[in-house]
């Protein structure tokens, strides 16, 4: 078995899945974290975003073997001011892009707790939202940094 940490807890997956993209391992029955989403499987939409040792990664292409012994964080584990700010201001529509946006925004806020609108937009430029929730995501995060 390959050990790693998921949102602070010990987790593992089968040796045979080292080459499987991390997204499928996380969402598979052994781990069962459904928050990272499948959107494109080619690093173009950001729906699958996770943090690996604090850095944002595309789980849709990252071979699961690469997180051996490392810490993976997903939106499910990020009960942070960033996630609360987005939820409290209804900063989404269908919500499919939301877990990825939470992860990407969290990565930014850890480095830069009071980002400008332009800095937030740049950090989220990898994250697609088809419903048009971007203006309120930006406002919610700007307010979260200002507090």
């Amino acid at each position: 078995m390959v050990p790693f940490r998921l949102n602070g807890d010990a987790a593992q997956f089968d040796d045979g899945e080292r080459d499987t993209p991390l997204l499928f391992v996380l969402r598979g029955p052994a781990v069962g974290d459904m928050t990272p989403k499948l959107g494109c499987a080619r690093e173009e939409c950001g729906a699958c975003r996770v943090l690996v040792d604090g850095d944002p990664a595309y789980a849709c292409t990252l071979p699961a073997g690469e997180v051996e012994g490392r810490h993976v964080e997903t939106a499910a584990g990020l009960d942070t001011p960033v996630r609360r700010a987005l939820l409290e201001s209804n900063a989404t529509q269908c919500g499919y892009c939301l877990p990825g946006i939470i992860v990407a925004a969290e990565a930014l806020f850890r480095l830069n707790p009071q980002p400008s609108r332009a800095e937030i937009a740049a950090a989220l430029d990898s994250q697609l939202c088809r419903c048009g929730s971007q203006p309120r995501v930006l406002s919610a995060l700007l307010a979260a940094g200002g507090e």
């Binding site: 969402r27 029955p29 459904m34 928050t35 989403k37 499948l38 939106a75 499910a76 996630r83 987005l86 939820l87 409290e88 209804n90 989404t92 269908c94 919500g95 499919y96 939301l98 877990p99 939470i102």
Partner: peptide
């Protein structure tokens, strides 16, 4: 008013894609 469905969408299985 808070949307009643979005916490689940941010933190767990919520979409048909997430069905077992």
């Amino acid at each position: 008013q808070r949307r009643t469905d979005i916490l689940a969408k941010a933190t767990g299985p919520a979409f048909v894609h997430d069905s077992d």
